[in-house]
Amino acid sequence: MNKRLSGLIAGIPTFWLVVLFVLPLLFVLKMSLTEARLGLPPYHDLIREMEDGLITIKINFGNYVILAQDSLYLSALWGSLKIATVSTLLCILIGYPMAYAIANSPKHLQTPLLMLVILPFWTSFLIRVYAWIGILKSNGLLNNFLMWCGVIDEPLQILHTVWAVYIGDAYSYLPFFILPLYATLVKLDRGLLEAAADLGARPVMQFLTVTLPQSIPGVVAGSMLVFIPVMGEFVIPDLLGGPDVLMLGKMMWIEFFNNKDWPLASALTVVLLVALIIPFVLMQNYEQQDSKDKA
């Protein structure tokens, strides 16, 4: 193919992502090293021209010191890790049986069932989170139902607790977990199960010794697709969680929009990014494995 043309084809998307994805992350890093001030813009520039014409670079690690010293931010980091972990476990608990059931249903039903899993993802995320407010609040659907059944005498306080956040996260990110796991499960060689059965393994043993170990890559991939975005989630803890549910994304939003402290919000973002590197590498490894399998 024409060298110049192929250079153009490769260059356009690469340039786009470098300018609008990589470069902005560097701006975040730079911003996190500046000092906040009142006014517009709400920060001192890193590189400043002094009155005597000297150009000085003033790097300020103060924002990171604040993050390390104020227990509020540490508990936000801890809260993000905890909530992301629990939500991921919930997704595994609900999503694995579903993915397994779909992968093992008759061939002609699999596509429609998958479409049913994906459909909620196509409707508005915000609106689906909003739906849970109506369900979880003290005079909401769930409490009314439980009281009607006689399970409880007075409404449970679920909305504005961390439980509402778990439910909202698991609900919103469930399709992201099911899809890669289904893709892994459906590729498994049925002959392996038959071989295991032939060698005397009962269905439970077949699952534990054949299906489960081979589905681990799908579980890891799906888990990362849940864990990573939940770590930085803002809408769900904001709408469903109470003021005492602390997460990095929410703290960052507050610092940025409410306190107008751009440098501190940037420092929080850097912390969040660093926390996400390991899960991201895990996911990349799975994808490379996957594309190797395809090739």
């Binding site: 992502l17 609008l20 975040v28 960052m252 973002t269």
Partner: peptide, 27 residues
């Protein structure tokens, strides 16, 4: 450009939107 593009394309899929939002605003 293939390898760097591969990584750069995968990242926004999972990157929390709050990071994308803030970083682009700063840009």
């Amino acid at each position: 450009m293939r390898k760097p593009l591969d990584v750069m394309v995968a990242a926004p899929l999972v990157m929390p939107d709050i990071i994308i939002g803030l970083s682009l605003l700063l840009l």
